[in-house]
Design a protein around this nucleic acid. Structure first.
Lengths: 123, 123
DNA sequence: TAAAAAAGTGATAATAGTTATCATAAATCG
DNA sequence: CGATTTATGATAACTATTATCACTTTTTTA
């Protein structure tokens, strides 16, 4: 993957936004400093980086994909009221992959846990 | 929720298909016996039933929603080669919701675990 | 270091999956 | 049964995302 300034600023924006932004949200932010950035470039790079394991693409939250610069094992909660995405760091499922493999014979390459409910602020 | 023949046949088709079908797949099957069934009716009813907890809507698998008549606690694996969806019955994450609640203060209402990899047949 | 090759970009069209609309039909209630 | 509520079918609309392609930037190489 060659260097590009666009990917550089996308990466930085993602690191600065702990909120697990969607492509649309990131685009709004990046447009301010990088007015020529194309939405296609943003999607292209987010996918490329996710495929390369440099970032994490979170799906199944609310229809849109969210992106996370934190690639360490953790899970995600989404508030069905305000839409906020919160990290869950419990490593409760640490041997889940292994258990699932022996149960099914499938080779587990990745997994994610998506939790839904109401966040503390919205209760 | 009033009775409707359409919802009746949708429910039956879902029970007969252990494969966690997508709306599109179900539509193809149902069209054979119910040629007037509208795709809108199918989506409408699948969503309604999922909201009512009668069935489970599985998202984050492959972009399309899959539907599951099995509402008991279990998780889902998708093969990235053949697209098959397999149940994972391990109750490894039984107290995950509770742990996540005490970690974050969020009220967990539901959660799903999505595993990805290669199934036994595709290896 | 300049030319050639490879990779990335921006603008926009296209796609896929799903939802909204609305006139009509079926189900339920009194 | 007649009135009211709820559901349906056809199709338009929407949203998030991907594809296309001429052009630009980056890397390679001679």
């Amino acid at each position: 993957m060659n260097y590009s300034r666009q990917r550089q600023v996308i990466t930085e924006a993602l690191e600065d936004n702990v909120v697990h932004p969607t492509a649309e949200y990131l685009y709004g932010i990046l447009k301010q400093t990088e007015p020529n950035l194309s939405l296609a470039t943003l999607y292209r790079n987010l996918n490329k980086m996710a495929d390369a394991g440099m970032i994490k693409k979170i799906e199944g939250l609310d229809g849109k994909a969210h992106y996370d610069h934190n690639t360490h094992e953790h899970y995600h909660f989404i508030c069905s009221k305000c839409g906020r995405v919160v990290d869950i760091n419990s490593n409760i499922a640490s041997n889940l992959a292994h258990e699932a493999e022996s149960e099914t014979g499938c080779k587990i390459e990745s997994y994610d846990i998506i939790l839904k409910g109401i966040c503390q602020d919205c209760r």
